[in-house]
Design a protein around this nucleic acid. Structure first.
Length: 672
DNA sequence: GTGGTGTAG
DNA sequence: GGTTCTACACCAC
């Protein structure tokens, strides 16, 4: 590092004159880039359909044109304009429905991913903006002996300020402007997208300056012009971070201009807004922002929402929720992670507070449901369980016996955790089966154990936030079957753990991947068996006519977790059964449903839930193996299993009486 | 963990 | 200001 300072604290940018005997502020070292794509949605549409390029184009959501291209802007169309008004102003306006965000989301992540090739510090701001910390890149270029220090700024200089190439900070920002140009060129060449960039020494300033010249241009801000930029803002709400509410409160204090906010005694602000917010916004009002560029990574929640004029019947709500849930499950399946929380948000129409009264309820997603969701099988059972949960949540907010008037429904999956599975083998028969049959399946192993996010184009290239191994270091060197609950596994006696890790199903090497359990195996087999007629069977299996309270489901989740390990069979193989339940809780017992069914004929030892068409296509050896497993399998009821586990939890090292079948093929399949 | 609020594009 | 469809941070509980 050849920089004169290592600290990250920002100098007082709004005033560079030395004040009295005060030590002059150190020059800003950071170089931050803000990239803002030009009319993002419209650009995506023009890339999808190049014929639209020269035509006035608007993107419509409901009855509004939410954005439009520059051809349309020239003809008077604006953002968030009612369709009617837009059509009046520009009768030739072409409108494209932009309610499905899939393409925009994809392009958005492609951009973020590409930016990640330049710097690991890329922070997303909505779909169409990114901050990139290019400090290191600038340092690198300046360290390069071939770096031309007489370079001129690439693009515009804010306020036409005279540049001093001998000034260290100026040099850095000049180099930064060239990095910005390279990045914009890459985005254009590789993705066909154009955008505006701002280059400055912090996030606030580069965001403020990036829109100075539009479209498809870039502007660099030198510290000496910071006060000019800040004071050009005519109202406090123009500061990013000061929203409508805060601006209102500031106005109540008589603070609507930037200069008023800058000079307001901090005690006054703190009294109104609290110390943290007060100090933060006063710093912002002076152009100071020491917040780091925080890599965004994949989203922490995914949601689908729809708005409407009036939704007032339960059947209507159900239909809309089903649609949203279907979309969401597809997205989650692509994402590859497991969602552990389900949230429903509604907006009720009331004459007084027409638009802003949103309320929500959330509940945990039972573990078994969560895992089945991630396996990619859009099974009817998962769907029905989630719908049940959603309707419960709905009824927590709305008394359906009384009239209601909804204008928004939003379904959200949050608490997303790595599924420990690559989605790539989701549709294969499954990791264990292929591995068991042939050691030549190493390829598929590596697929399953590929924990990089590469399989998901949306998230690749970003810093990986892989989960740490859940087992201790010594165990991490062993190979643990994918479908084992690691929490349970880690509590097992050592001999059992060894048995599991040395099982012939787990011959893969662990290398640098986590000792985790790609759900693909179970997902694969489940998918395989549950195609076609299995849907309704699965549904009835999960339901059993129970009414599932979210709280109750949490309890069940706890119980089922034990079952995952101890009973351990494919979803299709095990069905919950009230008739076999043990204890007071209904539906927590699992029974093997070995069918009496006539159509099974000689296969009477097969669970009735197996699709025979599918089964018959399996290699004979595998069929035999599975049949023998099913025949011999005696599943432990959940409660008993739980007790067993508790028992050997207490008596360390002692095998439980109902020990898990550690080398049993079935144990690696997930129960429902 | 839950539910609401505020902020942003 | 209203407007859509997101997504995140923060905070009290």
């Amino acid at each position: 590092m050849d920089s004169p300072r290592e600290e990250e604290d920002e100098p007082e940018l709004w005033s560079r004159e030395p004040v009295g005997c005060r030590r002059p502020a150190p020059p800003p070292r950071r170089v931050i880039l803000h990239l803002d794509m030009d009319c993002f949605y419209a650009q995506v549409e023009m890339i999808r359909n190049p014929e639209l390029k020269e035509k006035p184009l608007g993107v419509q959501q409901k009855s509004f044109v939410i954005t439009c291209n520059y051809a349309a802007r020239k003809l008077g169309v604006g953002k968030c304009m009612p369709v009617r008004e837009a059509k009046e102003r520009c009768p030739q306006l072409i409108l494209i429905c932009g309610e499905d965000l899939t393409h925009y989301r994809e392009m958005s992540y492609k951009i973020t991913e590409l930016l990640g090739e330049f710097s690991p510090q890329v922070e997303r701001l909505g779909f169409d903006e990114n901050f990139i910390d290019i400090t290191e890149l600038v340092d690198q270029r300046l360290r390069d002996p071939q770096c031309d220090r007489s370079l001129e700024v690439s693009g515009h200089v804010y306020n036409d300020q005279v540049v001093d190439p001998s000034d260290w900070t100026h040099q850095r920002l000049i180099v930064g402007s060239h990095v910005a140009a390279d990045i914009r060129a890459a985005v254009h060449t590789r993705l066909g997208m154009t955008g505006c960039a701002g280059i400055a020494s912090n996030k606030l300033l580069c965001k403020l300056v990036s829109g100075t010249f539009k479209p498809n241009q870039q502007t660099v801000l030198f510290p000496e012009s910071c006060s000019h930029l800040i004071n050009s803002l005519n109202h406090v709400h123009k500061i990013p971070g000061i929203g409508h509410k805060t601006a209102q409160r500031l106005e109540a204090l008589g603070l609507s201009s930037l200069s008023a906010l800058q000079s307001c005694p901090i005690t006054v602000l703190e009294k109104e807004l609290g110390a943290v917010v007060a100090q933060r916004i006063q710093m912002l009002s002076r152009g100071e922002d020491n917040s780091p560029v925080t890599p965004s990574g994949p989203p922490q929640s995914i949601s689908e929402e729809d708005s409407f004029r009036n939704c007032c019947t339960v059947s209507n709500v159900k239909a809309k929720l089903e649609e949203l849930l279907r979309l969401l499950l597809n997205r989650l399946s692509t994402d590859g992670r497991i969602a552990h929380t389900l949230r429903l948000t509604i907006r009720q129409f009331t004459p007084t507070n027409k638009y802003f009264n949103r309320e929500s309820r959330q509940c945990p997603i039972p573990m078994n449901v969560a895992q089945n969701m991630s396996s990619g099988s859009d099974s009817a059972a998962v769907f029905c369980t989630l719908m049940e949960l959603l309707m419960k949540l709905f009824e927590k907010m709305i008394d359906v016996k009384l009239p209601f008037h909804l204008t928004i429904l939003n379904v959200c999956f949050s608490n997303l955790k790595a599924s420990k599975s690559s989605g790539s083998s989701r549709n294969s028969i499954g990791f264990y089966l292929t591995q068991k049959k042939s050691s030549a399946d190493e390829g598929s192993n590596s697929q399953v154990t590929d924990f990089s996010t590469k399989s998901n184009p949306a998230f690749s290239g970003k810093p990986s936030h892989s989960p740490s191994p859940v087992v201790s270091n010594d165990e991490a060197s062993l190979s643990v079957p994918e479908n084992i609950d690691m929490d349970v596994f880690s509590q097992l006696p050592e001999d059992i753990r060894k048995e599991i890790t040395q099982s012939p199903h787990t011959t893969k090497k662990n290398k640098n991947v986590q000792t985790t359990r790609p759900a693909a195996a179970a997902g694969g087999i489940q998918h395989f068996f549950t195609k076609g007629k299995m849907g309704h069977l699965l549904a009835s299996a999960t339901h059993g006519g129970r009414s599932q309270d979210p709280v109750q489901s949490s309890l069940k989740t706890l119980l089922r977790k034990d079952c995952e390990f101890t009973s351990s069979a494919s979803d299709s193989l095990i069905t919950p059964s009230t008739s076999h339940s043990v204890g007071t809780e209904p539906n927590v017992g699992f029974s093997m449903d070995c069918a009496e069914s006539g159509e099974m004929g000689t296969m009477s030892s097969l669970p009735k839930s197996i699709d025979m068409n599918v089964f018959s296509q399996l290699p004979v050896e595998l069929q035999k193996e599975l049949m023998s497993e099913w025949k011999n399998q005696k599943l432990i009821p959940k409660i008993q299993a739980k007790q067993s586990q508790d028992k050997f939890k207490g008596t360390k090292g002692q095998k439980p009486s109902a020990a898990p079948h550690s080398n049993n093929l079935l144990k690696y399949f997930k129960p429902r």
